[in-house]
Amino acid sequence: MIHANDEPAVPMGLPLPNGKLAMWLFLVTEIMFFTALIGSYLIYRNGQPTASQPWPTPHDVHLAEWIGAVNTFVLICSSLTVVLALWSLHVGNSKRAVQYIGVTLALGCVFLVIKAYEYQQKFAHGILPGRVFEKLDSPHGYKYMRHVQEQLEHIEKHGGVNDKAKKACAELLADIRAGKLQPKDVNERVRGTKSIKETNPGKEFITTKDSTYVDLPERSRPKDAPMVEGILEMDTHAHLSYSIPFGNMWASCYFAMTGFHALHVFGGLVVFAIMLVMAWRGRFGPQNAQMVEVTGLYWHFVDIVWIFLFPLLYLV
C-alpha cells in the first residue's frame, strides 16, 4: 500500500514567485491585446488604401517623426533606470534604487507630457475620428467648403498667420463668398501643390490616375496646370482643414493605439509613485525587490509596445 508520504515530491506550478508568474500571465494577455490593435491597424492601413487613395503620411496628419523619436528615447531611458533600480536593490543600495525609481517616474511624466502636446495638436487641426474631411464630392464637399469658410473668417478676425498667408486667406474667402470655387479648388488652394511631392515621399512612382474619392491636388489636376502655392505652404501653422484620404480611420487607429499605451504608462507611474511614498515613509528596502522586479517587467513591456508603435505610426 502506498502512503501519501511515500510519493516522490512533485514540483507544483511554475518555478516562479507568485507575483512574477501573475505578471507574466498578465503580460501574455497584454501581448494578445496589443497584437489585436496593431493587427487591425495593419489591415486598415494595407487593405483599403490604393495608389490613388493612399494612407495618410505622418505629415498629412501633423505627426512629427522627431517627437516620436524623442519619446522613444525617453522610454528607453526609463527602461534603463527601472532595471538599475532593481539592480541597486540587489547590491543593497536602497537609496540609489529610490533615486532611480524617481527618475523613472519623471521620465514617464515627460513621455505623457509630450504625448499630451501631440494630442493637443491633433485637436487643434481637427484630426479626430469622424472630423476629418475625406470625400470632396457633394454633399461632403460643400460641408468642407463651409467649414473652411468659417476657419478663414476666424483667421480674418483674429489673425494668427503671417502676412502672405493672410492675404491669400482673404482672396480665398472672397472667392468662396462669390461662389467661384468648387470644393476641390478650395482644397488645392489650402493645401497647395508645391510641396505635395515632398510630403508624400516615394509617391511619384505610383500611378496618377484621377481619384473620384479624394483629392490630392497632384492627382486631380491636368499635368500642365501651373503649381499652386497653398496657404499651408505659406504658413504651416494656419488652422485650415484639407482633405486627408482615410484620415478618420487613421485618427481612430492613432488614438486607440497611443491612448491605450498612454493609459498603460499612467498605470505604471501610479505604482512608481506608490513606491516613492513607501520610501518617503521609510518602508522601502530590499524586501521590496520583487515589487520592483514585477513592476519593471510591466514597464519594459510598455516600452516594447512603444518600440512597435513608433515605427508603425511615425516612420513606415
Binding site: 511554475l14 501574455v28 497584437t35 495593419l42 489591415i43
Partner: peptide, 29 residues
C-alpha cells in the same frame, strides 16, 4: 520558466497576423 505560457501566445499572435495577411497584401482590389 515562462516559455510554456509565452509560446502559445506567440503562436496565436503569428497566426493572427498570417490570417490578416491576404487582406493586407492583396487588398482584394
Amino acid at each position: 520558466k515562462v516559455y510554456c505560457i509565452m509560446i502559445p501566445v506567440v503562436i496565436m499572435c503569428v497566426m493572427m497576423i498570417i490570417v490578416f495577411l491576404p487582406d493586407g497584401v492583396l487588398g482584394w482590389r
